[in-house]
Design a protein around this nucleic acid. Sequence first.
DNA 1: AGAGCGTGTATGCATTTGCAAACGCACTGG
DNA 2: CCAGTGCGTTTGCAAATGCATACACGCTCT
Lengths: 146, 146
Amino acid sequence: MELPKVGSIGEYIREQRTQAKISLRQLAAQAGVSFPYLSQVERGVRKPSAEILNQIAKGLRISSQALYVQAGLIDEREPESDVLAAIRADVTITGRQRQVLVDIYESFRKENKAAEKEGAQPTQPAEPLDAASLNGHATSEGYNLP
Amino acid sequence: MELPKVGSIGEYIREQRTQAKISLRQLAAQAGVSFPYLSQVERGVRKPSAEILNQIAKGLRISSQALYVQAGLIDEREPESDVLAAIRADVTITGRQRQVLVDIYESFRKENKAAEKEGAQPTQPAEPLDAASLNGHATSEGYNLP
DNA sequence: AGAGCGTGTATGCATTTGCAAACGCACTGG
DNA sequence: CCAGTGCGTTTGCAAATGCATACACGCTCT
C-alpha cells in the first residue's frame, strides 16, 4: 500500500507537464503551488489534496476529472446511458432515491428487452412495480397507470 | 474568497445525510471514516481531502463528482445534465414507463423540498422502498435495506 | 431515580500537507 | 574563470488532516 503504484498520479502529472514542454517551476507558478511541493507530488513523495489537484489541472489546461480519475478519486464507470448518467449526476436527490430511480430504470430496460425477444405485447406485463408504494403514498393522488 | 461560501461542502453532505435519514455514525461507518471527523467536516471545521470526499460520496451513494462540484473542486461547466430531459429523450422505454420515472423523480424533488424546509418530516419514517424487489438483484455492494 | 442506548460534539495527539529557504547540477556568456 | 540563470531536489517547520478517546445531551425502559 505504501508503494507508489505504477500508474500513479504523479507520473501522470509529470508526463503531462513534460509533454507540454513546460518546466516544473512554470507549472507550479501557473497552478499557484510551490515548485518544491510539485516536485514531491510528481515523484509520489507527497499526495496532493483535491484543491491542489484542481489547481494543477488548471495549470496543465486539462480537465480536473482526468486527474481525479487518474488519482483514483473517481470510480470512472462506463458511460452508461444518458438517463443513468443524469440520475447519477443529480445533486438534488438523495443517494437512496437515486438508487431507486436507477433500479426502476434498469428494470424497465430489462423488461423491454425480454418483451422484445418474444412477440408478446408487454403493454401491461403485470406492472412489476408499484410506483405509489415507493414513497409511501402516492405523491399526487397516485399514479393512474391504466 | 476566504469566507466559507455559504453553500459549503459540509452543509451539502449533512443535507444529503439527513435526507437519507441516516445518522452521522452510520454514514461514517459506511464511508470508512471516523464519526468525529465527519462531524467536523459537516460543520466546516475541517476540510476533507479528496480521498475522504470520495469515500463519503460512496457512503452516501452519490456520485463523487457531485461532491467535487459542490466543493468547488470541479469547475464543471457540464450543464448539470437534466434528468427529466434525459428521461424524455430516452427511446428505449415506453411512454408509460417514462411517465412513471418522471412522476417518481418529481415526487422525490417535492419530498426533498419539503424536508428541506422543515426539520425532517419524512413522508415515510421507515424504509419505504424495497429496491431488490424491483428487479430481483440486490444492487451488490452491501446495499442493506433493513 | 437511575441504567442503557442513541445521537452529535469537544479534546489530545500522530501523521501529513504544503511552503520558504537552501542546495547541487548543467549550461551559458562576459 | 566564474557570475548569472535555469533546472529539479532536499531540508526544516507551521499548519492542517484524520483518528481514538472522552464528553454532554436526549430518549426509552424497568
